[in-house]
């Protein structure tokens, strides 16, 4: 399955300078590739080939190794995320309380599926496995905001509040 970034890379010189700093910081750290990728995604929002090449060259590892690590972990994204990142928890406690219906409601409202981004770049949907707020099941995150004890018909109003 090919991961192709449709949106062209729009990295700025400031971001590149930040990335170079991150690479230098982790260059001699044992196992530094993981924190480098995590911080790089913090800078750019995702990990396109341009960023992965800089990391590969900077840390002295092959691009295929960097790509192998980037595609193993769910948190790393090869495609850009939306301005607002929605994450619906599908962990056991939330699932048993119907979080799959919450996810369906979000997908229906935005017209995209989990893992995708809306065409206007405003929203992207992901699912995650347990954020540790099982007392609030079912849980949905929008950026840093946590919404708990959700019902599917509450979804539309919550999403509209971000427009």
């Amino acid at each position: 399955m090919t991961e192709k970034t449709v949106i062209p890379f729009q990295g700025t010189p400031e971001q590149e300078a930040q990335l170079k700093e991150v690479i230098a910081k982790h260059h001699d750290q044992p196992g530094g590739l993981m924190p480098t990728l995590q911080e790089a995604q913090g800078i750019y929002g995702y990990l396109p080939i341009e960023v992965q090449k800089m990391i590969a060259d900077g840390l002295g590892v092959s691009l295929s190794e960097v790509f192998g690590v980037a595609t193993f972990y769910s948190q790393f994204s090869l495609t850009p995320k939306g301005k607002h990142r929605i994450s619906v928890c599908l962990g056991t406690a939330c699932y048993v309380k119907g979080s799959d219906k919450i996810l369906e409601a979000v997908e229906a409202k935005l017209g995209i599926k989990s893992g995708e981004c809306t065409a206007d770049g405003m929203f992207s949907i992901d699912s995650c496995r347990c954020v540790g707020a099982c007392g609030l099941a079912p849980v949905m995150l929008v950026d840093e905001d946590v919404y708990g004890k959700l019902k599917p018909d509450q979804v539309a109003k919550i999403l509209d509040s971000y427009k």
């Binding site: 196992g31 993981m34 924190p35 990728l37 995590q38 193993f72 972990y73 769910s74 948190q75 790393f76 995650c128 496995r129």
Partner: peptide
Amino acid sequence: IRLGAGAF
């Protein structure tokens, strides 16, 4: 501290 990245 080392962070995971979404792998059970």
